[in-house]
Nucleic acid binder design. Structure first.
Lengths: 368, 368
DNA sequence: CCAGCTTGCTAATGCGTATAAGTAATGCGC
DNA sequence: GCGCATTACTTATACGCATTAGCAAGCTGG
């Protein structure tokens, strides 16, 4: 009794049709001689407790049928049916695989992938408005991520309004990097404050009494945090802080020149700390100035870097400082996102950085 | 006449529930005083031609209503209804984000992402080892990729049987790298043959008459292609080919030693060409042997590399050879995959490599 | 004046899945 | 042997949207 459909609309877009349509639960069901619902029960219970009311024999038949057909659930349908599809989105506002700053997101993604795999999630890379070509990269482009169970957002220039909306809608969202201005937005970030503070304390323990932070003219949270940690470190060591301990580079005349370096040293400064940025500008400027001033690094003064050195300076002696544990950051982000998806409480958002002893610090030069 | 649902099942999983249910097309419709179908027509026709049979007045009412409610379409529902999900899979048999061989797939992925974004596709990353939900890393893990509209496969050690099955099922699959042994498998690859041939012709034009190819003991298509191009280049230049023009390194005794190098030179060989591999073994061996033999590169002999130098040798003088346009390869792979998904004819699978002049070649040394 | 077209919309249906509700069939205690 | 719980399923329905058949009204033309 094949009831002939009254209005079948097979043959959608000519393009979309082409394919032998991957197997559906209905086909698995037919092959196994059960109903579609049974297939759904068996397959979704697979991971969960075995408590479902399906006999082992039937279960096995269904599983065999599914395997032999190569059945894979349709994520959109799963999602629509209001379950979850074990997909986590990753959305970056720059290209996810940046051309120039290779090292910036990559290690992070390594951690993301690893942790996601360990938790049984697959990743969907939502290609942001990244490079040209994308259609009207309007705000609705962001909504694609709702296909996944939750989404990780990378990049600084995030459209807050859109994110806010998602958060308000209860869509699980985690941002990489501290983001406290948006109430309710979950984020994970490196604990730059503690790490920077620790570097300062290290210098203080070596005997340095006047330390200067060289930073760039950028007010990203990552910069602010480092400065805060730097100042906290000074305070903890009982050293003078204040605005003169922080030097902020700016284009016109505020650069780190050999002259300025000498004048600092003349004032009794014996150690310098540079913030890390994408370009490594502050660190480069310091190193160059030291070289040009004819000074030698661990002997005449100590240098520390609040982060990892740029990869093209890999040949240089390893700077004292700390490493941002990007793998762990990625993993932490996934853990937090998974927690949100599961409706559990979020965990600690700060990930500790690892202190790196390095070879650019030593005791202050003898009094001369 | 609000017909009361018999079995509403609001209140799914406690976790999944928590969303303030953003507006649906039905609500927009109610507000605009039209049917849901009209809303769908208006909204989906927005981008397309205005040829839809909806009056401008109604259209405007719907658009206003949608805006005032802040309507955004549910991507899951859209995709379910449209029978495609705009997802392309990327399956690599090593980790997608390998820790060590960063540079091998990375540039390729850059191109993949860019092109995918341009075409409105998102990417799903599958990894051979991890393979989301299914812990069983068995061959059925491969089936997970069917979640996407099509899939890109990277890596040498691809289980042919499984791929064959997918291809036979009509699932769109593109392999990165030439793969002609599998009938019907689409692939994109770099045109190593032409590029290698061009390098040889370059050497011949410089006056070299005896050239030797140093390759590793690996029969990957990429190696074979280079050798073929090398031999074709010799032939095109009217130079002697044959087996003695190709040196195949092997572990036990067949290595490129300074002695062997000298003996080649004594026989009249003036130029050497190394194949590029993951490790850059052949090239390293050549360079080392040249150094140890006390020879100087562009003067005493010419060297060329059939590919790009390993990144850790970035400081060395740039070798003559060619660059594999990995970005373009990735883009080409996506284009081909998109074509398959759309049921169109596939395009040219070979991507041309760019000749790189470099500094390691010159004329043959004067007769001595 | 009505067949036949066009215009502008609605009703109905399906996409693939999850799940609540329903139905036999069996087991168990008394 | 009856009520009731349990097991093992199946049936029905909904998720939100796209699509298409269909309907009503307004035209046209002969």
């Amino acid at each position: 009794m094949e009831q002939p459909r009254k209005g079948p609309r097979r043959g959608r877009t000519p393009a979309a049709t082409g394919r032998t349509s991957r197997p559906r639960q209905a086909e698995v069901a037919r092959l196994a001689g059960v109903s579609q619902a049974t297939v759904s029960l068996v397959l979704s219970a697979k991971a969960k407790a075995q408590g479902s009311a399906i006999s082992d024999e039937t279960r096995q038949r269904v599983l065999d049928a599914a395997r032999s057909l190569g059945y894979v659930p349709d994520p959109a349908a799963q999602r629509l049916a209001a379950a979850r599809n074990n997909l986590l989105g990753v959305y970056s506002f720059t290209a996810t695989f940046p051309t120039d700053v290779e090292h910036s997101y990559y290690p992070f993604l390594v951690g993301v992938e690893r942790e996601a795999a360990a938790r049984g999630y697959d990743l969907v890379l939502f290609t942001g408005s990244s490079s040209g070509g994308a259609k009207a990269a309007g705000p609705e482009a962001l909504n694609r991520v709702r296909l996944a169970d939750g989404c990780l957002f990378l990049g600084r220039h995030v459209p807050i309004a859109e994110l806010k909306r998602m958060v308000a809608d209860g869509f699980p969202v985690v941002h990489l990097g501290r983001r406290e201005e948006l109430e309710g937005l979950s984020w994970v970030g490196a604990d730059y404050v503690s790490a920077s503070s620790e570097v300062v304390r290290h210098l203080a323990a070596l005997g340095h009494r006047r330390i200067v932070l060289v930073r760039e003219d950028d007010d990203a949270p990552a910069s602010t945090d480092r400065q805060q940690g730097f100042l906290e470190g000074l305070e903890a060591a009982g050293l003078p802080g204040g605005s003169e301990a922080v030097f902020r580079c700016a284009d016109p005349g505020r650069e780190v020149t050999p002259e300025r370096l000498r004048s600092w040293i003349a004032e009794g400064v014996t150690a310098f700390v540079a913030e890390e940025t994408d370009t490594g500008g502050a660190w480069r400027a310091l190193r160059t100035a030291v070289d040009e001033a004819g000074l030698s690094c661990p002997d005449d003064l100590s240098l520390a870097l609040l982060g990892s050195p740029p990869s093209d300076l890999a040949g240089d002696p390893q700077p004292t400082g700390f490493d941002v544990p990007r793998h762990q950051l990625g993993a932490a982000a996934v853990r937090m996102l998974a927690a949100l998806v599961a409706g559990e409480a979020a965990e600690e958002p700060l990930v500790a950085c690892a202190f790196r002893a390095g070879a650019t610090t030593g005791g202050p030069p003898g009094p001369r």
